[in-house]
């Protein structure tokens, strides 16, 4: 069971908090620019080397079993296709409820992630299981729509019962240096979320530099995001270890700075148990064990769950398992 904060924020509250963090009397584009550009630059070579070295840890036996179960519990089981049907969403929910019919001790994923119009379907299928429904909103995946449309998209999903909202930032505004617009949009969407958790998708594959990833992370946290998420999964590259490392550093430093904890969600391209374990190692080493829980770290994935189940079966039976022993999805 995942708990969700129930505090609601108005956009004015968030602006006032941001002014305090920045130490300015008026939140302007200039103030945001000088703050974000005053963040230390990312050492690209060092960051990639650190991420690669953390990926070489050997996690075996009981640690591996723990890591697999933890990773399953952190999955946002996702289907975000134009071809999604009610039936497909229902079958995905059935999979979340019983991930491995051969082994009832298999933990359940944290949430189902769908488009806004499928929220009611998912909600009905999941019932009171405690599995959350996350909806992508704000003209996912491009984010290219007017603000009233984005807000309506968000409210629609929340009214349908979404526990979590995954929004995309306006990368065009971010890249052209219009940070205030990005801030205001996140803050307004946060307000529209009400009690629902807000995950802010930065689409790091479009942000070009690691410095921009760091700036977008801070901007998203400043504007009230409960989670910062790497990617939509529609753009390559999606989640990578170095980008996630920068985001984990950001949430760690943000908690030191403001006292509030923000979660991290890498999404897209994480397909194997080996990948997932590398991320868990990084969470523990960079952010700390406080983040090793579904409340603070998630995987946006679909095929990852099957691979984790196969590895789980391998640990249980001692023989390598195969695709015949998991559901097709």
């Amino acid at each position: 069971m995942v708990t969700v904060s129930t505090t609601t924020h108005t956009a004015q509250d968030l602006t006032a908090q941001a002014r305090d963090v920045l130490g300015v009397s008026r939140l302007t584009n200039h103030a945001l620019t000088s703050w974000l550009h005053g963040l230390p630059g990312v050492d690209q070579v060092g960051c990639e080397a650190r991420a690669a070295s953390l990926g070489t840890r050997s996690i075996k036996t009981t640690s591996k079993a723990w890591a697999i179960d933890t990773a399953i519990g952190m999955i946002d089981l996702t289907t975000l296709e134009g071809s999604d049907t009610v039936g497909k969403v229902r079958s995905l929910c059935a999979k979340a409820l019983v991930p491995d019919p051969l082994d009832p001790t298999t933990p359940r994923p944290a949430a189902i992630c769908v488009y806004g119009d499928m929220v009611a379907t998912a909600k009905a299928a999941l019932g009171d299981s405690g599995i959350h429904v996350a909806a992508v909103a704000t003209a996912f995946p491009s984010g290219r729509a007017s603000m009233p449309v984005k807000l309506a998209d968000t409210r629609d999903a929340v009214e349908a019962g979404a526990d979590e909202i995954d929004m995309v930032i306006d990368r065009g505004a971010f890249l052209s240096g219009d940070y205030l617009t990005v801030f205001n949009q996140i803050a307004e969407v946060k307000q529209a979320c009400g009690t629902a958790h807000l995950k802010v998708i930065m689409e790091t594959g479009e942000l070009v530099t690691y410095d921009n990833v760091r700036r977008a992370s801070y901007l998203s946290m400043l504007a009230g995001g409960d989670f910062i998420k790497t990617s939509t999964g529609k753009v390559q590259p999606a989640a990578t270890l170095p980008v996630t490392l920068i985001m984990l550093e950001a949430v760690r430093d943000w908690r030191d700075l403001t006292g509030s904890q923000v979660g991290v969600k890498p999404a897209g391209g994480i397909k194997t148990t080996k990948d997932a374990i590398k991320y868990l190692v990084m969470v523990s080493e960079i952010a700390g064990d406080d983040w090793l829980a579904p409340e603070w770290f998630r995987f946006g994935a679909s095929s990852l769950l099957n691979d984790l189940i196969l590895q789980r079966q391998k640990l249980a039976t001692g023989a390598y398992s195969g695709a015949d022993y998991v559901t097709i999805d």
């Binding site: 079966q313 039976t317 001692g318 023989a319 390598y320 398992s321 195969g322 695709a323 015949d324 022993y325």
Partner: peptide, 9 residues
């Protein structure tokens, strides 16, 4: 043994 026990063979 691993090949003989492999479920995907």
């Amino acid at each position: 043994t691993w090949l003989a026990a492999h479920r995907d063979v």
